[in-house]
Amino acid sequence: MSYDNEMEMKFKSLPENEAFARTSVSLFITPLNPTLDELNDIKTAVSEAVTNAVIHGYEESFGEIFLKCGIKQNTVYIKIEDKGKGIENIEQAMSPLYTSKPNLGRSGLGFTVMESFMDEIKVSSSAGEGTIIEMTKKITGGNSAG
């Protein structure tokens, strides 16, 4: 798809980069004049997706996380990709409160948050190859008529 504006970044799967990723996306979409709610929704969804790559994709090891953000008219497209271990059962991973790491004190709400805060989410994953999370959200800027 050709976007009106787009950016890509690549960073190491370190927990401190979660804030870097969500802040970068938030700055990039500022020209769309999102409401504070919309901005917060997108920041939270990005944070969840990156955390997922850090904790589950790469677990104890480190790898690269690829983030792409595109803007087409007033819709934001976000793609977050890791080359980690992948998700064997996507349906189970996406069910509310499911966590494969209860010992880490995780709530199991990551995908539920992404689904609720964004308009659309698509997760593709292959065991041993990595995970791609794609999300979109239309920005109204407080004007619900669009």
């Binding site: 939270t44 944070s47 004190g105 995780r106 709400l109």
Partner: peptide, 13 residues
């Protein structure tokens, strides 16, 4: 100023 589901995990624990 910001909280994702990690904060929920902390409170649940």
């Amino acid at each position: 100023t910001f909280m994702d589901s990690s904060g929920i995990g902390v409170i649940m624990g």
